[in-house]
Nucleic acid binder design. Structure first.
Lengths: 198, 198
DNA sequence: CGCCGAGTTGAACTGAATCAAGAAACGTGG
DNA sequence: CCACGTTTCTTGATTCAGTTCAACTCGGCG
């Protein structure tokens, strides 16, 4: 038996039996990609979802001024999909790019469609993923509407302590919707306050 | 045969057959609620999804300072659900409130669960709704990260021209993540520019 | 060693918030 | 149908969080 995180993900998280898991694995290709590889470019139709066996991906939009705005990160054990492009079969408005050397399982969208039709457990798991996704998106909207940069940053390091260490600050700033300079100042401010309180 | 929008929604949009539609209708209660009625309060577990037969609902979060932040509106023909609370069976962090006198179909969450198990078409439709929801949430995040107030407002009146007329500006401001005063100034600025260009 | 990208810091600027006060629109009851 | 209070919208003055642009520091790497 192989020992991929992806296998574990399919059996333990998605609760699929070994047969189905093997079947899925045999239809997915595993690729090693270097840092800075594009898995999807804006304007393309997405052909795959990506499971991150190792490494780290980012999904982002680029605005008129050429600035990146990160929608989400995907570290090991995460599934990265552009649901929008995949489901509606539209050109994507996002980029997906690796920000570390990574090992990625490419899951063909047709395979997903097939599974979605064939297997109840797969449907249930997909549903879980969708709802979890919605929950996190909603939280971010509410935060962007109401919370100042400092609070959003504190929440980020709380929620993703691992990412805080691995991801360059520029990217965290982009995720939070502020400039790198501002994030640097927020951090300085926090450090100063922390020092004076002890 | 009754003549509800809800009926039409179930047959034409969700592609359910008449039998199933009738069955659903018989399990849902239709209520007339006055403007300002709470259908859900933060901290409660949601028991129903709501189909808006007539009128207008808002879903919003309240921050520490007591400010409302509107996540979405639901006018006639829309389904309003707190997917988060419903799916994860958690206390909701949102309020749902009518902002016009409205007619609402209350769809019990257990009924939805049943249907989700029993009927393929229902599953497919629910899936469609989830993906559409994700698409709109993602768009908003990207906008909140990158676009200035004026651009967000222009997009709003483009996307929801009907709401622009019906909803008090205060609410639009809250949806856009700015103060009513700022929205008023954005509008003035737009009007001034428009006048000088003609 | 020298370059290069990431992070920091400073100064000037700007979009939006806040606070406060009026004006307009609206619904309700007399 | 008018008078009233309430809510919504506008306008002004001030403040503030975050941006922009530019210069400088630091650590890694060829």
């Amino acid at each position: 038996m192989n020992n991929f995180r992806f296998t574990h993900f399919l059996t333990s998280n998605a609760h699929l039996d070994r047969d189905l898991t093997d079947q899925i694995l045999s239809h997915c290709s595993r690729k090693e990609v270097r840092k800075g590889t594009f898995l999807l470019r804006s304007g393309e139709k997405i052909q795959h979802s990506f499971f991150v066996e190792k490494g780290l991906l980012k999904q982002y939009a680029v605005d008129k001024k050429g600035k990146e705005h990160i929608l989400q990160f995907a570290p090991e054990n995460w599934l990265m999909a552009d649901r929008e492009s995949e489901y509606f079969d539209q050109a994507s408005s996002y980029f997906i790019e690796s920000i570390e050397d990574s090992e990625i399982f490419y899951i063909n969208k047709d395979l997903i469609l097939q599974l979605a039709k064939a297997d109840e457990r797969f449907i249930a798991f997909n549903n879980f993923l969708l709802h979890r996704h919605i929950r996190s998106l909603q939280k971010r909207i509410t935060q962007l509407q109401s919370a100042p940069a400092e609070e959003r940053y504190l929440d980020f390091i709380q929620t993703y302590p691992d990412l805080t260490l691995r991801v360059p600050q520029t990217h965290i700033a982009s995720y939070l919707g502020i400039t790198p300079e501002s994030l640097s100042r927020v951090r300085k401010e926090l450090a100063d306050r922390h020092r004076s309180h002890s």
